[in-house]
Design a protein around this nucleic acid. Structure first.
Lengths: 221, 221
DNA sequence: TAATTGACACCTAGGTGTTAAAGT
DNA sequence: ACTTTAACACCTAGGTGTCAATTA
């Protein structure tokens, strides 16, 4: 049985500043439901509408960035890129991939976990750890098994190297690109008029996201 | 500049028995010179002959298996396979690959390193660690930039999936395969008439190697 | 009707030996 | 004369959207 299995694209990429160089950290990603609703896409309005109550929630899993644990030193220099995380709609998935319900809205979250001298990159139970969670509302997306909006399709074909084979026939026009951007801007405006700034403990730490990449974030299932 | 860069094939694969299930270990691989000589290949005799003193030694690097650290539990169940380790003849290599001199003889070594609660998979200085080294003389090989013996070429084409494209024209005949095996058996007989058994600390630990794979071990540079 | 699946062609990414050319 | 390099075709491995068929 072939599961529906995809990477996220665009990739969630996150950078950290102001953390302790000699401290060790794990960087985790999970994806949680935004609300308790199921959605459908209204083609004539080009927008998502509520279509009832949410399906039974999928098991919430956590993805540890494979380069974890990082030293604070490394985190200051590198952008942490979650290009390899995989999403599936198979509730029975045995490979530890993140499980989502199609046609539901999701919020990716980043967890920065302090690692004592013990412990590997793995974090079995977050509740026992000292950590901080960062949320970027502009990364909210709706999970799908097939694209609902052709602008999204075109945007992904334009920007994902693996879809290069479809580029000739579907380049975004200038007009489409502008339409796209205004749609996204509008969504962000209503959701998050003020950009949240996050501090890590008492060390005046900021987390900034590669906003350009994230602005286009729409992952299919 | 493209460095000469190859994986080892056949792969060094090692399994452990009798170790502590709850202890954490790193598994390392390095490759050290067997002697202080440089070799040349005598085609008419199909054997390696001493061709003078060794060239200045390449920097000796250590490759940590990327799945390190392992728990003893994992090590009991899984075979540790070093398929991803890369060899180069570029002394200036900046990627941390293992550096060898062509036309010299080498001995791969496996290091099993006890990891305290601290520390990641990385081991910066082996001398500060509690570890045990395992050596299998049958894995000795001569580094080359081009194959000297066509039986080796054919054997690798026959057994490496990535060389599938050359198989039709160069399958090993029954005779060639037998010749090959007797050559290898002879070499092993002279080098290592008795199979070494290794204990780890005082815990009655044995290390056994996937002998079949290793018997054919000849890696080019 | 709307959503999901699976076979497919087309890519990226990278591991092979071959061969002719270059290096020593 | 021997060794090394670099471009190449041919693979493995796996990430894309498409489209027709299937599911619910």
């Amino acid at each position: 049985v072939d599961d529906m299995l995809v990477r996220m694209f665009p990739t969630v990429r996150v950078s950290f500043t102001g953390i302790r160089p000699d401290q060790r950290y794990a960087v985790l990603l999970d994806i949680v439901p935004v609300d308790n609703k199921r959605y459908r896409y209204a083609y004539h309005r080009s927008s998502w509408l509520v279509a009832g109550k949410a399906d039974p929630p999928a098991p919430c899993r956590i993805y540890a960035h494979p380069d974890s644990p990082y030293t604070g030193e490394q985190l200051r220099k590198q952008v942490v890129s979650f290009e390899k995380v995989k999403l599936t709609n198979n509730e029975m998935d045995k490979h530890g991939h993140l499980v989502l319900n199609s046609m539901h809205k999701y919020q990716p979250r980043i967890h920065l976990v302090k690692r004592g001298e013990g412990a590997s990159g793995l974090v079995s139970d977050l509740e026992n750890e000292e950590y901080k969670t960062f949320i970027f509302p502009e990364t909210i997306f709706t999970a799908v098994t097939a694209y609902q909006n052709q602008l999204i399709t075109k945007l992904k074909i334009d920007s994902n190297p693996f879809a290069k084979g479809f580029r000739d026939s579907s380049r975004l026009t200038e007009f489409e690109r502008e339409t796209m951007e205004s749609m996204l801007a509008e969504q962000h405006y209503f959701r998050s008029p003020l950009r949240p700034f996050a501090d890590l403990d008492t060390h005046n730490n900021n987390l900034s996201l590669e906003e350009k990449a994230i602005l286009a974030a729409r992952s299919q299932l």
